[in-house]
């Protein structure tokens, strides 16, 4: 564990860590909570947000959306193109016996960070804005189910976005992918409001599958770089 943290700290820039672990989540959390408080206040009765039909659930979606986009953007900064075939970005790592295992551990640590943020930010957004538990008259269990479904969906979609984008050198390609994945995130979010537990189960299964699949695929890609594959 200690070693993994050391690898993670070494392979990622301090500015990356500050932005991704502190600044971006705090900013999104702040904005989301602020908007939630505003929405729940009596002053919002005539406000554009309320009049436009903005709900807590919509704020949840926006919170997830921005978290995913920033995750993708900042991941490009730290690991962009790391899985691109043929460019041999890892020349230095391959000359050390511990290079590839260290990078693999870093990637896994980043996945743990992604999962923690995906769950914590939407949930804390609700807590800070005072709309959890017991918002909108929904039963508590269902509300927890819905929030978890949204969080795990966010983790799944972020994992998909980031993992696929690492196979491209151009950020534009990754952002185009993000455009498509927003629709996927939207589907999970919308379905989560009606069938929270089913969506949670589906998102959890997909997340586990995607995490294992992309982890293995990336390590296989690196191992194959020692051969003509």
């Amino acid at each position: 564990m200690k070693k993994t943290v050391k690898y993670y700290r070494t392979f990622t820039d301090i500015r990356y860590r500050l932005l991704l672990i502190v600044v971006v989540p705090a900013a999104i959390l702040g904005l989301r909570a602020g908007a939630g408080i505003w929405l729940g206040s009596r002053y919002a009765a005539n406000a554009v947000l309320a009049a436009g039909g903005m709900t807590e659930e919509m704020l949840d979606f926006l919170c997830c959306l921005f978290l995913m986009l920033f995750d993708l953007l900042l991941d490009y900064w730290a690991f962009g193109g790391i899985a691109v075939k043929g460019t041999d970005h890892l020349g230095c790592l391959k000359t050390s016996a511990r290079g590839i295992p260290a990078m693999a551990a870093t990637m896994r640590a980043d996945q743990v960070r992604r999962l923690a943020e995906s769950v914590a930010v939407p949930l804390l957004g609700r807590v800070v804005s005072g709309t959890f538990p017991g918002a909108q008259g929904i039963r508590k269990a269902e509300e927890i189910g819905y929030l978890l479904a949204v969080s795990v969906s966010l983790y799944f979609v972020s994992t998909l976005a980031v993992s696929v984008a690492r196979y491209w050198e151009k950020l534009e390609a990754g952002m185009s992918l993000a455009g498509l994945l927003i629709i996927v995130l939207g589907i999970f979010w919308a379905a989560g409001q009606f069938w929270p537990w089913a969506v949670l189960a589906a998102a959890a299964s997909l997340s586990a599958g995607a995490s294992v699949f992309f982890d293995r695929k990336m390590i296989r890609r690196w191992e194959e770089s020692f051969y003509d594959k």
Partner: peptide
């Protein structure tokens, strides 16, 4: 060993290269 081309990740800073080499060797 040194090789031409992308031996280090392009986004690594010189200070990061130092830290990474310290970690790897």
């Amino acid at each position: 060993y040194t090789a031409p081309g992308l031996y280090f990740m392009p986004q690594w800073s010189i200070r990061q290269v130092e830290e990474i080499c310290g970690l790897l060797f």
